[in-house]
Amino acid sequence: MAIILPLLVTITALLAAGIYYRLAFVLLDPKRNKPLRHGRRNPNEPTHLMIVLGSGGHTTEMLSMLTRCVQESDPAQKLHWNDYHHRTWVVSEGDNLSAARAKEFEEMASPLSTQEDLMAGKVRKATDIGPGTYEVVTVPRAREIHQPLLTSPLSSLTTMRACWDLLQKHTTKTREGHGGQAGEKDAPDLILVNGPATATIMVFTSILLRFFDVKGVSTRGKMRTVYVESWARVKRLSLSGKLLRRVVDRFLVQWPQVKREVGGRVEYLGVLVQ
């Protein structure tokens, strides 16, 4: 019997070390492997972008940034929306306004991208994927505006469950390091978030999926994460920012003051909203 206690301690220690190693050196290392891509619109390598919207200000800022990107006149900074074969917009349940604004953005950005392709003579039927597809999906609210803090862990779990399913909604039987078959949708390659509670939960859920390498999302380099701190945050990070700072692949702020204050991997590229 005397051997059981030391054995348990050793096993626990090894497990903890393993978890730490996997988190620190495999999952949260921004230099971890990315999938190989041959061109932006290779039908054999479909791309999937996930954008998480929040209510009110967060949605406004996200769409303001993206609108500025797709309408940018400088070609080096211009985002071609159709480079992403599939776009998933995540909104909170009941937030019809955000859903409508996502749709409105798609109806502006995708035809704009198509039209520019035609004018530039870029479209080659065999190797181009066209305007791509998008969907607007809902998850339960992480926290109602006046919900007491006591019950919010419970509703956060419900949200997490929905995020877990959502992140696996599209997956493919795949060869190592590649997407699925031509035109097939795969798990998100990139998750773009900017602050609402739902977004924070989405990022942590994606890390959980990568931790267990569910459907190979970790080995295949899926679910990289980009966080943009609100333009309203001049000197200090928001709560979401503090929670996500060390776990996302890229962390952008919009004021030099907050970059100086926080330091580390924080990047400042100027104002991103318009």
Binding site: R37, G39, E72, D74, D249, L252, L269
Partner: peptide, 25 residues
């Protein structure tokens, strides 16, 4: 508004540059 590209923002890659890097384009 938005501020015209000046100074450090002139060489900036913008949000698009970050997304490109993360996608591995």
């Amino acid at each position: 508004w938005p501020p015209v590209n000046a100074g450090m923002q002139r060489q900036g890659k913008g949000l698009k540059g970050i997304l490109d890097e993360e996608m591995g384009f």
